[in-house]
Design a protein around this nucleic acid. Structure first.
Lengths: 194, 194
DNA sequence: CAACATCGGTTGATTAATTAACATGTATTG
DNA sequence: CAATACATGTTAATTAATCAACCGATGTTG
């Protein structure tokens, strides 16, 4: 990762933004390197200085957005060691709202299958596991329960984005948190009876 | 004018936009080259590759906006040889509305005196003279009348911008055109009596 | 007064982006 | 089929932007 040169950051971001903009117009398979270079106002060869092909570009673009989302969620949480994912939900929905064009394209494009899996994976590692590995039940983590909650989580997010965000981030964060908490309480009850 | 390299255009535009953004925050005299380079996300030395100092930058920035405004007004006029400035008024007000931040800063900053003069000069050359030099009275142009109408024109624009655009571009274009036409008719009557 | 900070302007070495060509493949079309 | 038009990668030479210094001036602060 060559760092500390503004040109690299600007160029990569311009290419990313061009791809995102084009994906709002047409499907990923119909987008060409020429289109991207024209939209980004860059020489076509410049793209190959940073990306092997358009699939590599899509891969890096996805990962960059997901990483940015993750840092955005953790950074905008004042309570540090709370391991409270409730505070992460609202920033996450706000991030989705802010980058609606990107996530909507990613979820709508039939040719892109890995994005949803990545999102689930990120939710698993970053959020759900924190909840299920609290001090009380750190040793008794249930992989199936993690998968269950992460899938439900992402499913709700997907519904919200595909339906053009009919509810506010605040309402969505509240609803999702209520359901997660409800299920979490049920897990605790069933695993430690009496 | 070194042309045909995208980097030059992008860099110059980034510096221009940084200056415009900073002028919305503080007066021109309090803006430093450091501020501009930080806001534009450029190396400080890069600015000196394009501009002698911040005054040269302001000069070029002003001229670029005024030139863009002129071409925008003429380009968005379908009727070619009509010499009808009425069609230019609405695009002009729309251009002002679009670049409100820039023009508002330029007119508000006490340290900038040449901008209003340039605007008047542009209105004179580009618009008013067309009106007053029609076939009927091409030889009998009145310099005082030109100055009169151009000043009135710019004064109306200045009022509109300084008052935060309280009326729509359509209404403003209509009002200004009515007043110009009224005065023009009066001139014709007084110069060719009977 | 001396130490310190900041800005303006310049410079040299380095790195990235640009242009304009390649060669190749793949459709489309007359 | 031949011609045409694009799209994909790659390349060499050129140019622009970057970084990290430098210097002198100016101004602040202890």
């Amino acid at each position: 990762m060559a760092k500390s040169d503004r040109r690299i950051k600007k160029t990569r971001e311009a290419i990313h933004q061009a791809l995102i903009a084009l994906m709002a117009e047409k499907s990923f398979e119909h987008i060409t390197i020429n289109h991207i270079s024209e939209k980004a106002d860059l020489n076509r060869g410049t793209i190959y200085l940073h990306f092997a092909d358009k699939y590599d570009l899509l891969d890096q673009c996805m990962q960059a957005r997901l990483d940015a989302m993750a840092t955005f969620c953790t950074l905008s949480r004042p309570g540090e060691e709370d391991t409270d994912i409730a505070r992460s939900l609202l920033p996450m929905f706000r991030y989705f709202e802010e980058h609606y064009a990107f996530f909507s394209s990613m979820l709508a494009d039939k040719g892109i299958t890995c994005f949803r899996e990545r999102l689930i994976h990120m939710v698993q590692n970053g959020l759900i596991e924190r909840l299920l590995t609290e001090a009380s039940n750190r040793e008794a983590r249930d992989e199936v329960a993690v998968q269950f909650m992460a899938s439900a989580y992402v499913g709700v997010v997907e519904w919200w984005i595909k339906h053009r965000m009919p509810l506010s981030p605040e309402v969505m964060a509240g609803k999702l948190w209520d359901m997660l908490e409800l299920h979490y309480a049920a897990i605790r009850l069933s695993s430690t009876p009496g």
